[in-house]
Write a protein that binds this DNA or RNA. Structure first.
Lengths: 206, 206, 206, 206
DNA sequence: TATGAATGAGTTTTCATTCAT
DNA sequence: AATGAATGAAAACTCATTCAT
């Protein structure tokens, strides 16, 4: 189940070492602006300024503003989800009850890292989608979680497997994102992980 | 626990009937643009055009662009949440198991109506917040739900009441919004309502 | 044979007197730049500067740069060709031999006025065409000349009338434009008119 | 009356075979872009890309963008006009009436080939002129035709020889270019050649 | 010779907002 | 109250050209 390579639409692939550094600098600058200043401040000129390159250089490597952000998101999603992917692959034979808390904890960490960037982005990012191949970002975890759950079919007490998976996904992501979005959460990470694992397990196995 | 009146900061209170019509026209125009064309197309000039008034008139009633959208959201949240509020007040004495499915169903409908507008808005709406006093929109339901749950304390099997309420809220809103956001949901409204009620009740009472 | 009104694609038709003045000022500025500085110097910012208005005002009335030039051309073609149109209409019954020299003279004057503007324009003006309805400019005279010649069919000694008209048109416009384009012409206007009339008459009547 | 060699200002004379190939590749790329995509798409970077060389290489052989196009035009004019030049030289003693149709036919072919390129160029090519010494392109044929006509003085019935030559030139080029520019010509090449030869001969000999 | 990374001035265009009428 | 003409800062993006490697 290999993922397609995280290829990003760049105008010119940087062949020289120097260019690679430049592209990374641009991405880092964009990242910085989004998280420290907000999406409204993401302008190509500002990115160039923060990255310490000229505006022309930015457009050498990215055809338009959205492509920069798309590349950033792509990168982030892959980076942040990889550990979860690996853990799921290792735990295909481990009973759900044993691996669920760890898994939920990893998802929580992953979503927290993502939310730093993702929560700043426009919710209805039509233009972004055109630049990131299928805009895997938000779909990424859903898919992987699906695969994982399918390997634990035997432990379910629910007839409609597909439905079970979907509800679990909504539970997991919905609760975690709601918790992370709450500016005044009254719970600790541990509590959320515990209750969420518990709830999902209960839902699935009875 | 009466909500503060949904008063919106307007430059000039529309005491005359004619003015009320104008303001409503502007709000409707904004609503229309957001839902039909997308938030990117919300410009003051465009709102004026669609509303059939001059740009000057728009600025007679709203100090700045964001105030229009804020007023719209305010209006929507109140309108859409009011039935839920009423139902909760009526059901303070009804056992959770009896009223939960109805309640979840109402929340689902409410969120669906909201999502038409809210999903188009920038997630990180710093500027909007400045205009709608505490930007009640997303907080609104959480608060109301809280109050309702507090009146059912007796039915809980959980020690930390606050925590229970928060998790329930996350479950409810998170799952519903996840379901609504999913462009290819495999479940029906009825299934979501059933499983969600079930899960929340299980979580709360055991 | 009424021409369709010289309607030009403007974003907003100027309803107030003040606005009409502004639009005219913009067109004059564009005209000035094209003839005094060259087409390369036609930039929207420069037009605004010369017209003494802000760049925003330019875009209030013209959706894009090319629309300004298109409007200018439209205006010029109509203005400059109108006398010829009238003369032809008056001379439908006058023998070709009598009215030809006057007509050629008028065409010469007309083409000279046009060439001031037209010769500065890009030859292959794809973008301009999109803005001026059918980009009548260069076709305008051909059509009118056609109609005129058709009313003198009786004087021709040539079988294929259509062909005769086309060759005449090519002769008239081709020679005049060649003469006007020549930076070092060895002939006077009078000589060109005399010989051209003579040649066209000879071609047509025998 | 040998023409000055078609020497073009190049930064570095391509003494080596390899360099010649490179220069030709650049010119071909420019040619291709002008005719297939339009003059607006002629950018140095695009030329380099199409030519399959780096932008640096382009600037090794041409000091600036316009020099490329100028070289192209120079080349085209010379290539396309050479047969006419030879034919004229051979026909100095042949009566006008005998060689005129062939000559006009050759001019027509020549102008057609040129128009593919020339019609895409900006009419007011100030910058181009600076690079091609006197920008012979359009003047080239006029001169050659002049020389040819001078050798047939004996056949003329017109007093002012210079004037006769000029009018003939205007007739020839003007009619042909008008015919070629017409997107919907109602005549065949043969008809144009026949009538044009006829008209010019009539004009000259009577 | 050839490369291609980098530059940055310059261009088009948008849109929130003001203000005279 | 309402109009709509005018503003101008600021954003996206281009492209001729240079220069270190």
């Amino acid at each position: 189940m290999k993922e397609s390579p995280p290829e990003i639409s760049v105008r010119k692939s940087p062949t020289q070492q120097r260019a690679r550094v430049t592209v990374d600098g641009i991405l880092e600058a964009a990242q910085l602006i989004i998280s420290k200043e907000g999406y409204d401040y993401v302008t190509t000129n500002h990115i160039a300024e923060i990255a310490g390159v000229s505006i022309g250089t930015v457009y050498q490597y990215f055809p338009r503003k959205e492509a920069i952000v798309a590349a950033l998101v792509e990168q982030l999603v892959v980076t942040v989800s990889e550990p979860i992917r690996r853990y799921m692959l290792e735990s295909m034979q481990v009973p759900l009850a044993r691996c669920m808390p760890t898994l939920i904890g990893m998802v929580l960490n992953s979503r927290r890292q993502m939310s730093l960037l993702l929560r700043r982005l426009p919710r209805d990012a039509t233009k972004l989608c055109e630049d990131s191949v299928p805009f895997t970002s938000e779909r990424f975890l859903f898919k992987t979680t699906s695969d994982f759950f399918k390997s634990h079919l035997g432990e379910f007490r629910i007839d409609d497997i597909d439905m079970a998976i979907y509800v679990s996904e909504y539970l997991c992501i919905g609760v975690i994102d709601g918790y992370l979005a709450d500016p005044t959460p009254k719970l600790s990470d541990e509590q959320v992980v515990e209750h969420l694992s518990d709830t999902i397990l209960k839902f699935l196995t009875r």
